[in-house]
Simulated scan of single mutants.
Amino acid sequence: MKFHKDMLLLYAVTDRKWTGRQTLYEQIEDALKGGATMIQLREKDLPESRLVAEAEKIKELCHSYHVPLIINDNVKAALLSGADGVHVGKEDMAVSDIRKIVPEDFIIGATAKTTEQAKKAEQGGADYLGVGAVFPSPTKQDAIRITRDQLKEICSAVSVPAVAIGGITRQNIEELAGGKMAGAAVVSGIFSAQDIQKETALLKKKIQEVLNL
């Protein structure tokens, strides 16, 4: 699936901790029904064979909504499952090395907390950046925080689009107005909601307002 920056508007990142009455698959479908524009499957603890099998099913679901599926960290699983791309942090495989071994239209996202990291990822061939954490994050409590001005500085330093990430909810997204991001990557703000479809739709509308779309 060819990447374009509109895919970053509302980037839903999974976290299995909120499954219970729903499966992760059902939660993702609700997010897609609500208007999520990209899905990242983040599974730190699944064996690779299970991750690949799950990603194959979720990819088909995402594609039925014309939405790309990105795999967190694991390039091999992304390629084996036929996912649309991978998102990596600075501790993972370098973007430039990934670009050498993947198909031309394979989407690569990279985390950037500084302008230097952002420029390096862009030069290596990243399609987009994830910039944060912009708020305290319940999923990454030790994440380094950045201010709105730092977000704006990083987004302005590169030509590839970026999403803000880290503790973003419908209630605080307005604080990022003017941050120059293309959208928001959201974990608990979507998947911890009682009604995921409704919350996703409301959050998407709020993001569009903040970005003046």
Rank of each mutant, 00 (worst) to 15 (best):
K2F: 06
H4M: 11
K5M: 12
L8P: 00
L9D: 11
L10F: 06
A12D: 02
T19A: 09
G20V: 04
R21H: 11
I28Y: 11
E29F: 06
A31F: 01
K33L: 14
G34C: 12
A36Q: 04
Q40I: 00
R42M: 07
E43S: 00
K44Q: 05
D45G: 04
L46H: 07
P47R: 06
P47W: 08
P47D: 06
S49G: 12
L51Q: 03
I58N: 01
I58K: 01
E60D: 13
L61Q: 09
C62Y: 13
H63G: 10
Y65I: 10
P68N: 12
P68Y: 08
I71W: 10
N72F: 08
N74D: 06
N74W: 03
N74Q: 12
K76N: 10
A77R: 00
L79N: 11
L80H: 14
L80K: 15
G82L: 13
A83P: 12
D84C: 13
G85F: 05
V86G: 11
V88F: 09
G89E: 04
K90N: 15
K90P: 08
K90F: 13
D92Q: 14
V95Y: 04
S96L: 07
S96C: 09
S96N: 13
D97M: 14
I101P: 04
E104L: 03
D105H: 14
I107R: 07
I107K: 07
I108G: 08
I108M: 06
A110H: 07
A110I: 07
A110E: 09
T111G: 05
A112S: 07
A112C: 06
K113S: 10
T114Y: 02
T115I: 14
Q117M: 08
K120N: 10
Q123N: 15
Q123S: 13
G124M: 03
G124D: 01
D127M: 03
D127V: 00
Y128T: 05
F135Q: 03
S137N: 10
P138D: 00
P138N: 03
T139C: 07
A143M: 05
I144A: 14
I144T: 15
R148S: 11
R148K: 15
D149C: 08
L151V: 05
C155M: 06
A157V: 10
A157E: 12
V158R: 00
S159N: 14
S159V: 02
P161I: 09
A164L: 11
I168Y: 02
I168T: 06
N172H: 04
I173M: 01
L176D: 04
L176F: 07
A177I: 09
A177G: 08
K180C: 15
A182Y: 05
G183M: 05
A185W: 02
V186H: 02
V186S: 02
S188L: 02
S192H: 01
A193L: 07
A193F: 02
D195K: 04
T200P: 01
K205S: 11
I207W: 07
I207M: 05
Q208F: 02
E209V: 10
V210W: 05
N212S: 13
N212T: 08
L213A: 14
